[in-house]
Design a binder for these strands. Structure first.
Length: 200
DNA sequence: GCAATGATTTACT
DNA sequence: GTAAATCATTGCC
């Protein structure tokens, strides 16, 4: 069952980030369907420095985040990795949820193919750059609404509050105080939650 | 441990 | 207008 746009357009990106855990992300690229359950998310808002659009700074890139909730914000990082975000809140409020890890469900063969033969199953989608590659997502899909035949989100398992782990976000030391906001949500004990990036 | 790699942004002339 | 710095990472050394 498709996740309705009302879900994304609420005025609470942190809550939405939590509730996205257990939901299923689908993609159909060139007729190939892959899917995975969301197991790791991070919330971003214009109110803090970790966000590209902090202080409501509008540029060509961040423009997508000012759209109404339910759009996909996909951008290139470190020159070689696509990162997938879901825009939340209403139009002109820049908030989004970064999807950092998935548990693969369908199309495992195709994910393996895209990621390379030597990748173990657990490494297919256990990181923000990995999951986009496994699902065939790239920035040609940037700004697309998550209700079409290429990429969408469905209701999945309901995750109880007790199974959600809260922590600080990853890799945004440049954000100063805001880097410590407890806005990263993971499903406890799920093997696909990215661990490697928790070092440093 | 650290190089790769390019879109984006900012800081200039 | 152009140039240089930045980066929400990964994978190979």
């Amino acid at each position: 069952m498709l996740l309705e746009s009302k879900f994304y357009q609420r005025n609470d990106v942190v809550k939405i980030a939590q509730e996205l855990l257990g939901k299923c992300l689908y993609s159909r690229i060139n007729g190939v369907i892959t899917s995975g359950m969301i197991v790791e998310t991070e919330a971003y808002s214009w109110r803090e420095r970790g966000c590209h659009a902090y202080a409501s700074k509008r540029t060509a890139r961040t423009e997508i985040m000012f759209k109404a909730g339910g759009h996909a914000y996909i951008y290139l990082c470190y020159g070689m990795h696509h990162l997938f975000n879901i825009v939340t809140n209403v139009e002109n409020v820049a908030e989004a949820v970064l999807i950092r890890a998935l548990e693969p469900l369908e199309g495992l063969d195709h994910m393996q193919e895209r990621r390379g033969k030597r990748v173990s199953q657990k490494d297919l989608t256990s990181g923000p750059g990995k999951l986009t590659k496994a699902m065939g997502i790239d920035r040609t899909l940037n700004g697309i609404f998550l209700q079409n035949d290429k990429i969408w989100v469905e209701k999945g398992e309901r995750i109880s509050a007790g199974s959600i782990e809260v922590s600080a976000r990853i890799g945004i030391d440049y954000a100063g105080e805001d880097a410590r906001l407890p806005w990263r949500f993971t499903i406890k004990h799920n093997p696909w939650v990215s661990k490697l990036s928790t070092k440093k």
